[in-house]
Write a protein that binds this DNA or RNA. Structure first.
Lengths: 189, 189
DNA sequence: GCGACATTGTACCGAATGGTACAATGAGTC
DNA sequence: GACTCATTGTACCATTCGGTACAATGTCGC
């Protein structure tokens, strides 16, 4: 049995950070090479498709993390409220309380969206759907659950933007606290 | 009296659209030249500071539009509810019901934020402050008004992201409808 | 040590990048 | 027509871009 995965995981994490900070166009191969310590030879060995394949792999990597740590708990928790609580904790931790920005959300905004439209739509679509299902199971009427889910995911994205614009992490914390309350969770102190 | 403003206005509008679609890094001088019909000679004549000055002027231009059409009505309307209603109409119209993305929000996300941090913080800060004041004047307690304003502006940004990600304009319309309701406005049919 | 293959460094490619220099043109004033 | 100054097109600059080619390594099973 061969082990490629672990190194590739942390490689993708580093590349993700470069895309996150500089955007798709702004993340040059030299920046990526510098951050990963890999030359073009290695980079193109692991990602023969070049920059576009790197971005695609990074999105899939992030998507996988959310699938495991957010979407699956939303779907599988016996207690839907517990699943939703789990979502907020994972979200707060992933975005480092607002220090980090959503790569996929950023990609959605500029013209790189066209390249990755399918992956982007999938990611957000699954997030909203899974959350809506959990809300429905916890007592909301279906239509209401759907709107509330969409509103919640959008609020998280907006809070990330605003927190970064204001350079104030509390913006994100406040948003999460309000969302927990609105979704009927007890807010931890 | 000399008239420079009108041409410069529509020039800035075109340049803004290029930045909006391609981001700061992605908006190359050749794209800008192509969109405006101007060569580098003219471009650098109007913006001696190059690309950075163009972006700065574009942000200021957008900021000015919001000052006139959103922030001022929020501050000056005798009836604060009317001012808030005006804000939603102007916002919906500016973002073309979700077809357009917020340039300043997009700039806030990637590394170009560092270049324009001050302008970006100003823009969002004034939006939140003006809205909070209007909400306070319409009866909300100050702390509550402040949180509600922050929540509303973030919700608009998030809805723009999500609408674009899902490639579904209704996401934005639904968000605006919910916000109007939450802020106590009658929703138009 | 051998062969197979994964990994890497380096040199290189044409194209595009942001930016500069400057001469030519435009239009309006006197 | 001459002067002024805003505007423009073009050629050019060094640098960087994403990407390719390939020989030189490393690393493993055998």
């Amino acid at each position: 049995m061969r082990r490629i995965a672990p190194d590739r995981d942390q490689l993708l994490a580093i590349v993700a950070e470069v895309f996150r900070e500089h955007g798709y166009e702004g993340a040059s191969l030299s920046l990526i090479g510098e951050a990963t310590g890999l030359g073009k030879g290695s980079l193109y060995h692991f990602f023969p498709g070049g920059k576009e394949e790197m971005a695609r792999a990074v999105i899939a990597h992030i998507d996988g993390w959310f699938e495991d740590n957010v979407f699956a708990p939303l779907r599988d928790s016996a207690d839907p409220q517990a699943g939703i609580g789990h979502m907020f904790e994972a979200t707060d931790s992933y975005f480092r309380s607002g220090r980090r920005v959503c790569l996929i959300g950023a990609f959605a905004l500029d013209e790189s969206r066209d390249l990755f439209a399918g992956q982007i739509r999938d990611y957000f679509g699954r997030w909203v759907t899974r959350l809506a299902e959990a809300l429905a199971r916890s007592g909301h009427r279906p239509g209401e659950a759907s709107e509330l889910a969409e509103e919640t995911v959008a609020a998280i994205q907006g809070a990330l933007t605003l927190a970064r614009a204001a350079d104030d992490l509390d913006v994100f914390s406040r948003a999460l606290r309000r969302l927990r309350m609105r979704l009927g969770l007890s807010v931890k102190i």
